[in-house]
Simulated assay, not measured.
Amino acid sequence: MLDEATATNVIDYFLLQYRLPDGNTVADRFVTRRPALTDADRQMVLAWRDPVEGLFEVRGRNGDSLLLLNLLDDLEYCTYTNAGRTALRRVAKGSFLSARLVALAPAPGAWLFSGVMSSYPRSAMPEIAAAALDLAAGRPGLVFRNPEKVEQGWHSMREDRAAFAEFFGSDELILTPEEAEDRINAYYRHRQHAAGAGQCPGSPRGGQHAAPNPPLFTLSPELAEAETVGVIYDRVDGLNFYADYGSLRDLFANPGLPGRKRHQDLLRTYLREESITPLPIRRLAAAHPKTVDTVFRKLLRQPDFTWNEHGDALLRRRKPWYVESEQRPGVSVIGDRLSELLRSRPR
Rank of each mutant, 00 (worst) to 15 (best):
91 V>G: 04
174 I>T: 15
149 K>M: 10
258 P>C: 00
139 R>A: 13
347 R>K: 13
118 S>A: 13
343 R>E: 07
144 F>L: 10
266 L>G: 01
185 N>R: 01
100 R>L: 01
127 E>K: 12
316 R>Y: 06
225 E>D: 13
145 R>A: 01
347 R>A: 13
151 E>I: 09
248 L>E: 09
210 A>F: 07
40 A>E: 15
35 P>L: 00
200 C>V: 02
154 W>V: 07
260 R>Q: 08
320 P>H: 07
272 R>S: 07
275 S>V: 11
343 R>H: 10
89 R>W: 06
59 R>K: 13
138 G>L: 10
238 G>I: 02
245 Y>I: 10
286 A>C: 02
300 L>H: 13
59 R>N: 01
106 P>I: 08
81 T>N: 08
116 V>T: 15
43 Q>I: 06
104 L>W: 15
33 R>M: 06
170 S>F: 02
27 A>V: 15
167 F>T: 09
87 A>E: 12
288 H>F: 15
345 R>G: 01
108 P>S: 06
238 G>L: 01
177 P>C: 02
233 Y>V: 01
239 L>K: 13
280 P>E: 09
261 K>E: 12
176 T>P: 12
3 D>Y: 08
125 M>S: 03
312 D>S: 10
274 E>I: 09
27 A>Q: 09
260 R>S: 12
250 D>C: 04
23 G>D: 09
289 P>F: 05
174 I>R: 15
202 G>F: 00
296 F>W: 03
339 S>T: 15
347 R>D: 12
20 L>H: 14
77 Y>L: 02
330 G>Y: 03
226 A>T: 14
329 P>A: 03
78 C>W: 10
242 Y>S: 04
145 R>D: 00
99 A>S: 11
131 A>Y: 04
313 A>P: 12
342 L>S: 08
93 K>W: 08
336 D>C: 01
189 R>V: 00
230 G>D: 07
235 R>S: 14
220 S>H: 14
323 V>H: 09
44 M>A: 15
270 Y>S: 08
38 T>A: 00
318 R>G: 08
298 K>N: 09
75 L>S: 13
1 M>L: 07
178 E>P: 05
162 A>K: 13
321 W>H: 11
78 C>G: 08
6 T>W: 07
335 G>E: 01
283 R>M: 01
166 E>D: 11
334 I>P: 00
303 P>F: 00
14 F>R: 12
263 H>Y: 09
60 G>Q: 08
298 K>C: 02
194 A>F: 04
305 F>Q: 00
193 H>W: 05
158 R>P: 01
160 D>I: 11
279 L>K: 06
85 R>G: 00
303 P>S: 05
317 R>M: 10
151 E>M: 04
293 D>I: 09
270 Y>G: 07
188 Y>C: 00
229 V>S: 05
262 R>C: 02
338 L>A: 04
304 D>L: 00
322 Y>S: 03
332 S>N: 07
11 I>T: 14
119 S>D: 13
123 S>N: 03
188 Y>K: 02
22 D>W: 13
136 A>F: 11
61 R>G: 11
197 A>C: 10
46 L>R: 15
313 A>W: 06
96 F>N: 07
192 Q>F: 00
163 A>Y: 06
321 W>Q: 12
71 L>G: 05
64 D>H: 06
223 L>G: 08
286 A>K: 14
315 L>R: 12
116 V>N: 07
89 R>N: 06
278 P>N: 00
234 D>Q: 04
